[in-house]
Computed example of a mutant assay.
Amino acid sequence: MYGISDKIILIFCSAAYYLFYSDSYLAIIPILIVIALSSLFTYYDNKKFQLFACLSFAAICLFMPSYIVFLPALLYDLCLTHYQLIVISLPILLFINNKLINLETMFFVIGITILVYLIKYKTAKLIKLQKEYNDLRDNSVEISLQLEAKNKDLLLNQDAQINLATLNERNRISKEIHDNIGHLLSRSIIQIGALLIVAKDEVITKGLTSLKESLSEGMDQVRNSIHKMYDESIDLYSQLDMIVKEFTACQISFDYDIKTPPALPVKHGLIAIVKESLANVIRHSNASKVVILLREHPAIYQLIIQDNGSLMDDQKKHLTAAIESKTFGTGMGLNNIVERVKGFDGNINFYFDNGFKIFITIPK
């Protein structure tokens, strides 16, 4: 865009000078030639072609000396390139070899050539600054997006840490209640039972019985509260991550992508399935790598457990028969996994083309 406006200015200045001294109806011809070539240079940015066109126009100037006023405008695209020596020498050579060019035209061409260099330098500088500005703006936007993403991740991690700390605190409180209050209530109930055995007075016996029933009811409520607090304190990711970290039989990778925690029975089921699957890897597989993927979809939870172990032909036949008959017996613990998945109305599939793969989907 900047180059086009520069060319318009140069062609206008050259045309104004040319038309001022020309009264021929053919004066429009060099103007049209220069406009056409300049437009072509803008569209087809090939320096060799531009050099050839400028040399051809310079050859025309040998026969039409007045056309030389348009030569600097054509040389605009060659300025600040490795052909710029030609830009300087070409008008000078024309002046030397053509005695018909007057002194005024010579000074005009020299002045417009200097103007071409200045305009070209200014435009190149402006384009460079524009590019640097665009790069800086793009980098700023990219950095801003990265910071926004990191802030979002930090907030999510912070929420996860707060939730985990809350669950751990619930677990601690439930254990303290169980160890302290639960034991005190149990001991009190036992002591009251002993007193009931030795008590003779009916009034005392009735009071102790009522007290024992109240303590037993309180004990049951404490036990239920403890179990509820403990169950709520189970964090699925922490439990699975701990299982993964304790697995040392081979390399293991764990990918967890769940935003909405599943129900408590599903948590227990998933934990048990992962434990059983890793136990099968230790007992029955020669795998060097295990991959666990747990993902959340709009309507289901998806669990994929895969290893790269090799299966013998007999094992493949046995597994194929078991899958077709849906009877796994007690071998490899697969029956327990299948029963757990069925209990959640889920689906389970087994693949053993490349290692052994368990693909499980459980509805929300």
Rank of each mutant, 00 (worst) to 15 (best):
Y256L: 05
E246A: 14
S238A: 10
Q221T: 10
G207Y: 08
K289E: 01
L278D: 04
E232P: 09
F247Y: 05
I234G: 10
K228P: 08
D220I: 02
S210E: 09
L303H: 01
I271C: 04
L195I: 06
F247A: 10
A287R: 11
T327G: 03
N335C: 02
I282P: 11
V274F: 00
E296L: 13
S253P: 13
K212F: 02
I234V: 13
K267F: 00
E217G: 06
C250P: 08
L303Y: 03
E217F: 11
Q302M: 09
T209A: 12
L215D: 01
L264V: 14
D235G: 04
I204S: 13
Q315Y: 10
G218K: 04
N280K: 14
Q239D: 00
P261R: 02
S253T: 15
K275L: 01
V244W: 03
H227G: 14
H297D: 11
A199P: 03
L236N: 07
L236A: 04
G193S: 15
N308C: 10
S288Q: 03
K326V: 01
E213Q: 12
L211S: 13
D231R: 13
H297E: 11
T205C: 05
K212L: 04
R223S: 10
I273R: 06
Q251F: 07
G193A: 08
S216K: 07
D220Q: 15
L240S: 05
I292W: 00
E246P: 08
L270T: 09
D231L: 03
N335G: 01
A279N: 13
M242H: 08
M312E: 15
V266R: 09
K259D: 00
K245T: 05
I282A: 04
G329C: 02
L319K: 05
E276D: 07
